[in-house]
Write a protein that binds this DNA or RNA. Structure first.
Lengths: 176, 176
DNA sequence: TTGGTGCTTGCATAATCATTCACTTACCCG
DNA sequence: CGGGTAAGTGAATGATTATGCAAGCACCAA
């Protein structure tokens, strides 16, 4: 298996699909088909269906009862292989600090809920739960493990270098 | 608008739907229809479709390419009027206790997310955020209001009688 | 009571999405 | 070179989900 590089059309298409989903409110596969065509990419509904599956896209409901596509960030974590968690953490976690039983995880703007969702479903021992804002996650550690211990786990998962274990550098309001 | 109390069948059904979704891996609406029937609740696919919309359920993809339903903690309550909150709380909250800045809300199995979602979007003063498990919600109270004060508000909303404000009767692990 | 209003539901059907099958192409190995 | 294998795709079709419509019921007001 494995081609050379010619077959990049699929990847290009899927990348465009991802982009379209993220920016527009894509309501259906025919709709997405149109948008793709406007970008000079032609594909049938069948192909798009397969793309969406591979990308892990799902239809979510938005206000008004309509539903649009979104990239999952959610589904795969149901069975969250810790590999997935590690991948998400490595991708999006910028900083991990702790104070008392709380661990504060910083992410790029808007990404907090993605990481929090993965954490929530990871079944990580020592993690009671999370509250995610826009770019900040607050994790509640068990008393047994404590904030410091949990922070250590999280840093290990994300590959973040040890950073100021006890003294927060800056106050960030998590608008939940 | 506003019936007496006879028309509880819809709410019962939706509660069961929520529970089934949370526990089983519901793959389709006909599948859910069967599960409901096994619980003694009959409904057509059309009704179930509407229930799922109202509950904000979505189909997510799990490992293997299959997809199952899940409650969206995310879309529907976008507009959550406080009346809605009161209704949800009254329907599903079994117990409210507090300790320190935390309030623990117990619900029927599988229903925690629904309540937590409503709470998250309620803009309730004194409530910083929530972490929902299967049948348990942890609410973080502001320091100003405190766990006791928040618990009081929540009890009022849900109509639960005052219960052991400071001493948890039983340890319930919130499996998040 | 009587008529009006709004909510809920089932039926039938439309809309949407997933999958089977066949075909093409690229690549690998004798 | 063939032959074998696997990925990728479209057309057609099957499966699933959403919806228009009408009926039924509770409630309210006159």
């Amino acid at each position: 298996m494995g081609y050379g590089e010619v077959m990049s059309s699929k990847q290009q298409r899927q990348q465009m699909v991802t982009r379209l989903i993220a920016h527009d409110n894509v309501s259906s596969q025919p709709h997405l088909q149109e948008l793709l065509k406007a970008q000079g990419i032609e594909a049938t509904q069948a192909t798009i269906s397969r793309d969406l599956e591979e990308l892990g896209a799902v239809k979510i409901r938005i206000a008004g009862g309509d539903s649009i596509y979104a990239i999952a960030e959610y589904a795969p974590a149901r069975v969250a292989p810790s590999d997935q968690l590690r991948r998400v953490m490595a991708e999006w976690v910028a900083e991990v600090t702790s104070s008392g039983n709380l661990v504060v995880v910083r992410t790029p703007p808007g990404c907090a809920h993605v990481v929090a969702s993965a954490l929530d479903r990871s079944g990580l021992v020592g993690l009671l739960g999370t509250v995610a804002g826009d770019d900040t996650i607050m994790c509640v550690a068990t008393e047994e493990v404590g904030g410091t211990g949990l922070a250590e786990q999280l840093r290990s998962l994300s590959g973040v270098t040890d950073a100021t274990g006890g003294i927060p550098r800056k106050k960030g309001a998590a608008h939940v």
